[in-house]
């Protein structure tokens, strides 16, 4: 049963548009899958390799701006942004890695946070290229959601396959070794800087795809949205924290919960403005009571319910 679980999930996801969901529900499903891609990408670096990044908005925004600038300045299809975002995000990740991967613990957290902010300020100020705070608006390829859905599902599959392949290979064990004890890993002959760079680069490219997708799907971006610390970088962390750090299904579960919660809370009149407060409280509760997330602490939750029933 457990072996077929991914295939069953995939089959269900493939036939989902045929059920005839309305556009709003499709929108939620598409966003969930997009956030699951982001979550899986973040999880590879943060969960498996133990490098908590507060700056993944830098990659997300770079991906989004690749598509946007191609469409706006060069008048070619925004879809080519996916191709362009790969070399660009690799370059960003490598140069970022050169600075931040030498740092550990709190230094690393702060450095990534700062780099994310540098990207936002850069995008706000280089008006010639990015249109500054006005943002970029492009025409969406399709009005229908179904095509977007299959594309983002493809991205989700790609992210899942990449993360699964890496974490189940030799590299995955290196990553976990680095997370658990970097000095011990180094003394066992693991080139820690190299493997951290690999984790960062793969994570960056996947996040960049999600960013490019955001551009072509939403049709509008500005620096405050795609380079946002609170709405992108921290939400990405929340997706993983809620779902489960260093688990395969955690980011997906987290993404579905966070997207639905965000939509639900925002639609309640008067309470809607407080959605960040509720997110914050949720984060605090998760960290104190379920530090490994819903998937990671699933046995704990089950025990809690069983005890309650008995």
């Amino acid at each position: 049963m457990k072996r077929y679980f991914p295939i069953i999930v995939l089959a269900v996801l493939c036939v989902l548009p045929l059920v005839g969901l309305n556009t709003y529900l499709m929108h939620i499903v598409i966003l969930s899958v997009m956030w699951a891609v982001c979550g899986m990408a973040w999880n590879l670096l943060g969960g498996y390799c133990g490098q908590v990044s507060f700056g993944h908005a830098a990659f997300f925004g770079t991906g989004a701006y690749c598509s946007g600038i191609l469409a706006m300045k060069f008048k070619i299809s925004a879809w080519y942004g996916f191709l362009l975002s790969v070399p660009l995000n690799v370059a960003v990740a490598l140069s970022m890695g050169l600075i931040v991967l030498r740092l550990r613990g709190p230094y690393f957290v702060l450095a990534t946070l700062a780099i994310g902010e540098v990207f936002r300020i850069f995008a706000e100020n280089v008006v010639d290229l990015t249109n500054g705070n006005l943002g970029i608006m492009i025409e969406r390829t399709w009005v229908e959601k179904t095509q977007f859905y299959y594309i983002v599902l493809g991205l989700g599959l790609l992210a899942y396959a990449v993360v699964k392949f890496i974490t189940e290979s030799r590299w995955g064990y290196y990553f976990v070794a680095i997370r658990e004890d970097q000095d011990a890993a180094e003394s066992l002959g693991i080139n820690t800087t190299l493997y951290k760079t690999i984790a960062l680069t793969v994570s960056a490219v996947l996040t960049g795809f999600a960013g490019s997708f955001y551009m072509v799907y939403m049709g509008y971006i500005d620096p405050q949205i795609v380079f946002s610390l609170g709405e992108i970088s921290i939400l990405m962390i929340m997706v993983v924290m809620v779902g489960g750090v260093a688990t395969f299904w955690g980011p997906t579960v987290g993404a579905v919960i966070m997207v639905i919660l965000a939509e639900l809370i925002r639609s309640i009149p008067r309470v809607g403005v407080a959605y960040q407060t509720l997110f914050g409280i949720l984060l605090i509760v998760i960290i104190i009571y379920l530090p490994n997330g819903l998937v990671g602490d699933f046995p704990k939750i089950r025990r809690m319910f069983q005890r309650g029933a008995a």
Binding site: G47, V52, P106, V245, T277, F279, G280, I284
Partner: peptide, 18 residues
């Protein structure tokens, strides 16, 4: 006990958001 060593940092982010 948790996998990530930076839970307190993420916690302060949550407090800040609230």
């Amino acid at each position: 006990e948790s996998i990530l060593p930076h839970n307190q940092v993420i916690l302060t982010v949550g407090i800040g958001m609230v």
